[in-house]
């Protein structure tokens, strides 16, 4: 095994995959239900990380930072949807228009952070942690926490989607909003919940991303956005389980490839994987190709 794949890089891959999974599942969940491509997702991650940082600075624990990030992300996403995105949809803005609106929102958030806090790097104050050695892989206790959190959240999301009435309603809304509505599902409420969940995952992902990279600035979340999109598309957009698999594949592929070639290429590898998959299966690994075909929706 050690001769084929350097095991330590597999460890890095698992950590990256965990962060990516939190973000990609949040991203794809909301896109699946609402059909709005939220390009402000990465910048919301940065904003949530900043809120978590604020809690950290005033002496909060890591758990409190994570909670603050998740709550902020959830509320900000829901407000963004209700007071910015939904009015544009009701106003008659179509697919392209919505992509432009979300991209604009992201640019505004990012530059607002830049203008307010300057081009500084921020670092969470974290107590010096021990490094653990597990079958050839090295993890800090924070990285253990990140992986544990990701696994727990993935299980909760999966159970919520498959085992509860709310999850059923969300899947129904994603599949056919009009049919869901006439079947008595309060689709507006479901969409609000989808934004809240997506935002909470976004906030968590933002905080763990900067915990792992140790320092961040106004562009950190947005730089990560393209990898998130790649993971979501790889799994099939709108498929939470697909996004999870996409995140694991990309997380491990990027880190393992970094062991063989210049680490600066690891993201290129992620995108090459994505482009190849899209050429073979336009709908992604778990997606339905028909769902992404063009029509004049």
């Amino acid at each position: 095994m050690t001769a084929v794949v350097p095991v330590y890089s597999l460890g890095f891959g698992l950590v990256t995959a965990s962060i990516l999974a939190l973000a990609a599942v949040g991203f794809t969940l909301q896109f699946g239900v609402t059909n709005i491509l939220n390009l402000a997702f990465g910048d919301l991650m940065t904003a949530s990380a900043l809120v978590g940082y604020g809690v950290n600075v005033i002496g909060g624990t890591l758990a409190e930072s994570l909670l603050a990030g998740a709550v902020f992300g959830a509320i900000a996403s829901a407000l963004l949807n209700r007071y910015v995105y939904t009015p544009f949809v009701r106003h008659g803005t179509k697919l392209f228009g919505m992509v432009i609106v979300t991209l604009s929102t992201g640019i505004v958030i990012q530059n607002f952070i830049l203008g307010w806090f300057g081009a500084n790097f921020f670092s969470y104050k974290v107590a010096q942690t021990k490094t653990y050695h597990v079958v050839g892989m090295y993890f800090t206790s924070i990285q253990f926490m990140i992986m544990g959190l990701a696994i727990a959240v993935m299980i909760v999301v999966q159970l919520l989607l498959t085992q509860t009435r709310l999850g059923k309603a969300m899947r129904a809304t994603a599949a056919n909003p009009a049919l869901a509505q006439i079947s008595g599902i309060a689709t507006d409420r479901v969409i609000d919940v989808a934004w809240l969940m997506s935002g909470a995952l976004c906030g968590l992902a933002g905080v763990v991303l900067v915990l792992n990279t140790t320092s961040f600035q106004s562009t950190t979340g947005n730089d990560f956005l393209v990898v998130i999109i790649a993971a979501a598309m790889l799994g099939g957009v709108g498929r939470p389980l697909g996004a999870l698999v996409g995140a694991v594949i990309l997380g491990i592929a990027t880190e393992v490839s970094a062991a063989y070639m210049s680490p600066s290429y690891k993201e290129v590898i992620a995108f090459v994987v994505l482009v190849i998959v899209l050429l073979v299966r336009p709908g992604g690994l778990f997606g339905n190709a028909d769902a992404v075909r063009s029509s004049n929706a």
Binding site: L37, L95, F96, M98, V99, V226, I229, A230, M233, V237, S262, S264, Y265, E267, V268, F271, V272, L274, V275, L278, L279, P282, V292, R293, S294, S295, A297
Partner: peptide, 29 residues
């Protein structure tokens, strides 16, 4: 050839975005 197949318009936009970022990474590295 990669991006302009019959994909939904916002999918095309995402693919383009990803390609643009690949290009920046390749040229930078």
């Amino acid at each position: 050839l990669i991006a302009l197949r019959r994909l939904r318009a916002d999918y095309q936009a995402m693919v383009m975005l990803v390609i643009s970022v690949i290009a920046t990474l390749v040229v930078t590295n």
